[in-house]
Simulated scan of single mutants.
Amino acid sequence: MDLCVTIKGVSFLLQTGMGILGNAVVLLAYAHIIFTEPKLLPVDMILCHLAFAHLMLMLTRGVPQTLTVFGYTDLFNDAGCKVIIFSYRISRALSVCITCMLSVFQAVTVAPAGPRLSKLKSALPSLVLPTFAGLWLLNSAIYFQTFFHAKAPRNGTIPAFTINVGFCHVDFKNSLTYIIKGVLSSGRDFCFVALMVASSVYILLLLHHHSHQMKAIRRSQGGGAETRAAKSVVTLVVLYVLFFGIDNIIWIYMLTETKVSPVVADMRVFFSSCYASLSPYFIISSNKKIKTKILCAVEQDQPASMDTQESHDK
Results as ranks from 00 to 15, higher is better:
237 V>K: 01
10 V>W: 08
137 L>D: 02
85 I>E: 13
108 V>Y: 05
103 S>A: 15
209 H>S: 07
235 T>K: 09
1 M>A: 11
194 A>P: 08
138 L>H: 11
286 S>K: 07
233 V>E: 09
129 L>W: 05
114 G>M: 04
81 C>K: 05
80 G>V: 06
125 P>N: 06
86 F>V: 02
36 T>V: 10
137 L>A: 15
298 V>P: 05
166 G>F: 03
124 L>K: 02
10 V>Q: 03
78 D>Q: 11
251 W>C: 05
200 S>M: 08
95 S>G: 15
130 P>M: 04
9 G>N: 01
313 D>V: 06
259 K>G: 01
16 T>N: 00
208 H>R: 14
286 S>W: 01
14 L>F: 10
164 N>D: 15
39 K>E: 14
14 L>M: 08
204 L>S: 09
5 V>M: 12
197 V>D: 07
184 L>D: 08
232 S>F: 02
2 D>V: 00
100 C>G: 05
68 T>R: 04
211 S>I: 12
175 S>L: 15
227 T>P: 00
176 L>M: 08
140 S>T: 10
167 F>L: 04
166 G>E: 04
236 L>F: 10
19 G>D: 04
164 N>R: 07
27 L>F: 03
78 D>S: 12
142 I>R: 00
243 F>I: 01
159 P>F: 10
303 P>A: 10
82 K>F: 04
275 Y>Q: 03
